[in-house]
Simulated assay, not measured.
Amino acid sequence: MTDPPFGPATAPGFNTLIMRESDRDVSIRLNRPDVRNAIDEEMVDELHAVCDQLDEHPRILSIHGASGIFAAGADIRQLRERGRADALRGINSKLFDRIAALPMPTIAVIDGHALGGGAELAYACDFRIGSPKTRFGNPETGLGIIAGAGATWRLMELVGRPVAKEVLLAGRILDGRESLDVHLLTELVESDELEDAAERLIEKIAKQGDLALQLTKNVMHAPEGSHPVIEQIAQAVLFETDEKHERMTRFLDKKGGKS
């Protein structure tokens, strides 16, 4: 399968990612097609480097896969050799936590399989767009381990406990339609429409206020019990911004001064 035009890599030091960026957004393509885009430590390091850039210059992030697959999971060859100390390092979980906590919204664009660590990467994103070819699954227990990079709790938050148990304990694979039905996918489109669907969502997000987006995401991820105080603090910050005044003035001007 030939990938749709994605532009050249803007970071020539990357070996496992192709990256395209603008002042509005950053798009990356997982690019290890010979191993079905399996997530190895080099890819983890390169994704951390992307996160460094987005922490410094917050923008919308979209993550795509090469050659008709999102990611078939963690690299089993590396995973087989990992021991207790590696598990306690949280190699993948720390990365996915970091992606989930990025300042601006994130989008996983999924054609084909998102399994194991690939599924957990998608679960860490704020939005997921898929195709009829999309397949979500967590086969870790069949390999004698657990889905230890966020699936055991993120998937329950996304689809509820009963469906999560089917996936995590009984090996259920969710196809694109099923994923949409349980709200794991935000949108379902044909494979050749995925890039356009991602662009439409990016455009919708980009129309919002940057700081309002960042603070809304922070408040949504705030610990239980911190509301409503944290909402009030975030709103207090936003009430004092020039952007709030300018956006509300434009709104009122369009409405002829009526609220």
Score class of each variant (00 low, 15 high):
2 T>Q: 11
4 P>N: 07
7 G>K: 07
9 A>R: 10
18 I>C: 14
19 M>N: 08
19 M>S: 15
20 R>T: 02
24 R>A: 03
25 D>H: 12
29 R>F: 04
31 N>L: 04
41 E>H: 11
41 E>S: 12
46 E>W: 05
46 E>V: 07
46 E>H: 06
51 C>H: 00
53 Q>I: 00
56 E>N: 11
62 S>V: 01
68 G>F: 12
70 F>C: 09
73 G>N: 09
73 G>Q: 09
78 Q>F: 11
83 G>D: 15
85 A>P: 02
90 G>N: 07
91 I>K: 08
93 S>T: 11
95 L>Q: 09
95 L>E: 09
103 P>N: 04
106 T>L: 03
113 H>R: 15
118 G>Q: 07
118 G>R: 04
122 A>E: 02
122 A>P: 03
123 Y>T: 00
126 D>C: 03
131 S>G: 00
131 S>H: 01
133 K>C: 02
145 I>C: 05
157 E>S: 13
163 V>N: 10
171 G>M: 12
173 I>H: 11
173 I>L: 15
176 G>W: 05
177 R>P: 02
180 L>C: 01
187 E>C: 03
188 L>W: 04
189 V>M: 10
191 S>G: 10
195 E>N: 05
200 R>C: 07
200 R>D: 09
204 K>I: 00
207 K>Y: 01
208 Q>I: 00
211 L>D: 05
212 A>H: 13
217 K>H: 01
222 A>Y: 12
224 E>Q: 13
235 Q>R: 15
239 F>E: 14
240 E>S: 13
240 E>I: 04
242 D>F: 08
245 H>Y: 13
246 E>P: 07
247 R>W: 06
250 R>G: 00
253 D>V: 12
